[in-house]
Design a protein around this nucleic acid. Structure first.
Length: 503
RNA sequence: CGGGGAGUAGCGCAGCUUGGUAGCGCGCCUGCUUCGGGAGCAGGAGGUCGCAGGUUCAAAUCCUGUCUCUCCGACCA
């Protein structure tokens, strides 16, 4: 036993030393100076990318991070894309308070149970001890429910369709920027409906909106499904989820939508007088997506040179880099400025005219930040009335005549968006396996999505976790085929499930 | 929360074993020369060594505590 633990420790530390060596070697080879290659240390790669791309910084408090402008801008694009769709489906934005009195938080039994371990409490106002402690919201079902019960009296008040953009706090044990932080930004929708059917439809409709935004804007392919009971939101009847596959083969739950039945309506007394004169409980839903999506964006599209931004959410879509000095330089700069003005109406353009850096430095710099298109303008191009365009997604360089530049840029931005989605889809397709026994995932290093049968028992879900480290990510809404037997116990399968190791 | 690793200039690190003037590379500032894939030379600025105690004539170095980051588990968007 002693020998075993010793060798384990040794392996761990020598593994780390080995990684450091490899990393240094990579740096000497000038593969890339600032970013650890994915293949050497994925976690380190992730941290390097977000820091070198100037997306976040750590704060003095554990688990809290600063979102710097370059990542916050991405968040703003996500917000815009979602707000448009929320509004189109009749939702309105509102804002509910940050602090929730303890008695409210405790109204719904399963909900409290689910969140109690990670709630932060406010106990003092100034130096005075509060009569009742106040929870910093981990999510807002309770405070929203309490308010809704005041606002709703008649079926004519329904449906209530509200959304809020806010921060929430969950005291997490281990944190990683974007993926799991103690405080995070998100959007949470809360609705009340007259019938169960309507609430169910709402739940699915919002999941579909998430899919549109995540696939269409972030270029991240997702699998839509239903959570198993063990993975369900605390207090929900049914939780719908979108699962994405990261480039290290682990799954990320990227958005969820909950059908809450009448659980919260009963707990918070959300009742309405129906047309038939009887008092009924409303049917509620809630749905959320967070800055975690940005973490997904990084892990799905990033490569060893850094980020690769899908154009639709890229803070800078086109960077123009002048080449040359002296007399040439002046003409080049004039041309670049003119191009920046011209293209500014069709894309988010940045002219990098910093004199202190060479073009080569700038290429690397902007590639690290994932700018989709780079336009190079040098003396040669000036004479030939052309520019060189380099794509971040494929690395391809092409020469484009000035006359065709605006249309080409517009087309290429569209192509890069498609290509990133195509690459991610192809990867996911390649790394999705159908298995009949969960141990078969071992051959693939438990990297990827695994489709297998499930008998429906929580015991099997638990043993899966213990034996393979995988969890049931969801019961896909569109199962590919139905396995005859459970991948864990071999009994008759109830439905195909998606298995993976998850973030 | 358990177990590893790490905190020294903006970044990456050496120095610590054996206590005695704070170092290197990159970056930064100034000047000149450079510019089609991380430019060159010269000069210069920058650090209460994570924080708090303790030992000592003397602590980056030794001891205790604590905070943060990071990895692996357990718990979760």
């Amino acid at each position: 036993m002693f020998a075993r633990s010793t060798s384990k420790t040794w392996l761990r530390s020598s593994g780390k030393r080995f990684k450091t060596l490899l990393r240094r070697f990579a740096q000497l080879e000038n593969v890339l100076k600032e970013i650890t290659p994915k293949s050497i240390d994925y976690s380190q790669w992730y941290v390097d990318v977000i820091r070198k791309a100037d997306m976040v910084d750590y704060s003095p408090v554990k688990g809290f991070m600063v979102m710097k402008p370059y990542s916050y801008r991405v968040w703003e694009f996500i917000q815009a894309a979602m707000n448009t769709r929320f509004r189109a489906t009749g939702h309105e934005n509102a804002y509910f308070p940050l602090l929730i009195p303890e008695h409210l938080l405790q109204r719904e039994a399963k909900h409290v149970e689910g969140f109690s371990a990670e709630v932060a409490w406010v106990t003092h106002g100034g130096s005075e001890l509060l009569a009742e402690r106040l929870a910093v919201r981990p999510t807002s079902e309770t405070i929203v429910g309490a308010m809704y019960s005041k606002w709703i009296q008649s079926y004519r008040d329904l449906p209530v369709l509200m959304n809020q953009w806010s921060n929430v706090v969950r005291w997490e044990k281990s944190t990683r920027p974007f993926l799991r932080t103690t405080e995070f930004l998100w959007q949470e929708g809360h609705t009340v409906h007259r019938t169960a059917d309507e609430a169910e439809r709402e739940t699915r409709q919002q999941l579909e909106i998430y899919r549109e935004v995540i696939e269409g804007e972030l270029a991240i392919p997702v699998v839509a499904g239903v959570k198993s009971a063990g993975e369900r939101f605390a207090g929900a009847v049914e939780t719908y989820t979108l699962e994405a596959l990261m480039s290290d083969g682990r799954a990320l739950q990227i958005a969820t939508s909950h059908f809450l039945g009448q659980n919260f309506a009963r707990a918070f007394d959300i009742q309405f007088l129906d047309e038939d004169g009887t008092l009924k409980y409303g049917w509620t839903t809630s749905w959320g997506s967070s800055t975690r999506m940005i973490g997904g964006l990084i892990m799905v599209h990033g490569d060893d040179r850094g980020l690769r931004m899908p154009p639709r959410v890229a803070p800078i879509q086109v960077v123009i880099i002048p080449i040359g000095r002296g007399a040439d330089g002046k003409a080049v700069h004039a041309r670049c400025r003119a191009l920046a003005d011209e293209l500014g109406s069709i894309a988010r353009v940045r002219l990098d005219d910093r004199p202190e850096y060479t073009p080569g430095y700038k290429y690397n710099d902007w590639e690290m930040r994932g700018v989709p298109l780079r336009i190079e303008v040098g003396p040669r191009d000036l004479k030939a009335e052309q520019v060189v365009i380099a794509r971040r997604d494929t690395g391809q360089k092409t020469t484009v005549a000035l006359a065709e530049l605006p249309s080409t840029v517009a087309r290429l931005l569209d192509e890069v968006q498609q290509e990133l989605f195509r690459q991610a889809s192809e990867y996911r397709g390649r790394e999705t396996y159908t298995i009949s026994r969960c141990q078969e995932a071992d051959a693939h290093g438990y990297r990827g999505f695994f489709r297998g049968g499930w008998c429906g028992s929580e015991a099997c879900a638990d043993s899966l976790k213990i034996e393979t480290g995988m969890t049931i990510r969801c019961l896909p809404l569109e199962p590919e085929s139905n396995q005859a037997s459970c991948a864990m116990c071999g009994a008759t399968s109830r439905q195909q499930v998606l298995l993976a190791r998850a973030y």
